[in-house]
Design a protein around this nucleic acid. Structure first.
Length: 302
DNA sequence: ATCCTATCCTGTAGGC
DNA sequence: TGCCTACAGGATAGGA
């Protein structure tokens, strides 16, 4: 559920609300989150003050004082909800309740419990096994076509699974992978190693554009995701292909197709994203260095 | 290296 | 109305 734009929306909201607040108490439900109950929070959080809020891919890093960081991942159904004055009744699936000294509270809710919440020494974050394997974050380091092309050289995976691989680029999930490829006009079944330079330029440009636009609209609410204030994200209206099987393509009118890749749904337009790309015009598309995506956006950095 | 399956969980939507 | 199945925004492990 929550991909980079949703996590970034939560990060910004937390920055503006809980930063500087000091934890008075922490309660946990006792249910395990992705393998372990976050018991360490009960002892480790009280007395700590919230500092900087960072994000890498889909991971949220809540820096605390005294050299600790709360590492959070929302999995499929996790959400942090802020309460200026917390309700008396604990709603179902609340697994962590952080109460601040001023009486406000931050609750972590996660029906499917695929999320994680654990305390890590800030100095050792780089060696945390979850974080160490991640590729660069596409907001901090916007990808360019040549960078993607270099990363993809020789790989035989399909380009959709490539975008989903957090070890390559961290933060793109199942919704945005389909959206990016549709806007870049690249068929999701294409072998990564066979994607042309100009197409990588388009993929890079659309990665930057789609993620940026989704953040501006507070993410996509398909069903579960909510902002810190329990509001749905607004990017759902902008989706061009995701969950639109058999509906007309918003660009050309052809029927959107649903296929399964890596056990997960992929949506694409067979007309806009042909299995074989159009031949590049003579003299261009060899290196792609001078070309940008179809919309002419220029990525910032290699 | 890649691909396929299974697993961790609960909620929901759709078919009958 | 209820029962059943399929599927869901993620990540990981094991085996072919």
């Amino acid at each position: 559920m929550p991909e980079l734009p949703e996590v970034e929306t939560v990060r910004r909201a937390l920055e503006g609300t809980v930063r500087g607040r000091t934890v008075a108490a922490c309660w946990i439900s006792g249910h395990a989150l992705r393998g372990e109950a976050p018991r360490a929070l009960v002892r480790g959080l009280p007395g700590r003050t919230i500092g900087t809020l960072r994000r890498h891919g889909k991971y949220l890093l809540v820096d605390l004082d005294a050299g600790w960081t709360l590492l959070s991942h929302l999995g499929m159904s996790g959400r942090w909800l802020f309460h200026e004055s917390p309700p008396m009744r604990v709603t179902p699936h609340v697994h962590v309740r952080v109460t601040f000294r001023d009486g406000s509270a931050l609750w972590y809710e996660d029906p499917r419990r695929f999320g994680i919440a654990r305390l890590v020494r800030t100095a050792k974050l780089g060696r945390d096994p979850s974080l160490a394997i991640l590729g660069p974050d596409p907001i901090m380091s916007p990808p360019t076509g040549p960078w993607f092309a270099a990363l993809a050289r020789g790989l035989r995976v399909n380009v959709k699974d490539f975008l989903l691989d957090q070890k390559k680029v961290a933060g793109i999930g199942n919704i945005y992978a389909s959206e990016i490829l549709h806007r870049a006009r690249v068929n999701p079944r294409r072998r990564t190693g066979a994607v042309r330079a100009a197409e990588w330029d388009a993929i890079a440009a659309e990665t930057n554009a789609v993620l940026g636009e989704a953040i501006a609209r507070m993410g996509t609410t398909f069903s579960m995701y909510r902002t810190l204030w329990n509001e749905p994200g607004q990017y759902g209206d902008q989706l061009l292909v995701y969950d639109r099987a058999d509906e007309p393509c918003r660009r050309c009118g052809a029927g959107i197709r649903r296929i399964v890749q890596g056990q997960r749904s992929t949506f694409f337009c067979p007309a806009c994203q042909p299995a074989r790309p159009a031949k590049p015009a003579a003299g261009v598309g060899r290196t792609g260095a001078g070309r940008t995506g179809a919309r002419g956006r220029t990525p910032k950095r290699a």
